[in-house]
């Protein structure tokens, strides 16, 4: 089975996010005063081929995130896995 994986990484809570700060200032200057906080992160899409079980795919994704895709010192990650159609 093939799996469609969506991964998001962002700076951990409490770590100053200069990009998020800049975006927040920008939104405020456009008059969006309700904006309380902004965090900028990264979004990755991957396709995993030929893995039979979802939990195996999940394990692999976590491994990839821990090793390379996120830096555990400063970043958190989350992911969604969906079986590919067709």
């Amino acid at each position: 089975m093939d799996w469609e994986v969506k991964i998001e990484t962002k700076l951990k809570d409490g770590i100053l996010d200069p990009q998020g700060k800049a975006v927040k200032t920008g939104l405020k200057s456009l008059g969006y005063n309700n904006v309380e906080s902004v965090h900028v992160g990264k979004y990755l899409e991957l396709v995993l081929e030929n893995i039979e079980q979802k939990n195996k795919a999940a394990k692999m994704v976590e491994e990839m995130c821990d090793k390379l895709l996120a830096n555990p010192v400063i970043e958190d990650y989350s992911y969604h896995i969906k079986e590919m159609e067709g």
Partner: peptide, 8 residues
Amino acid sequence: AMKVNDNL
């Protein structure tokens, strides 16, 4: 770890 410069 390294982050982007504070002035981006």
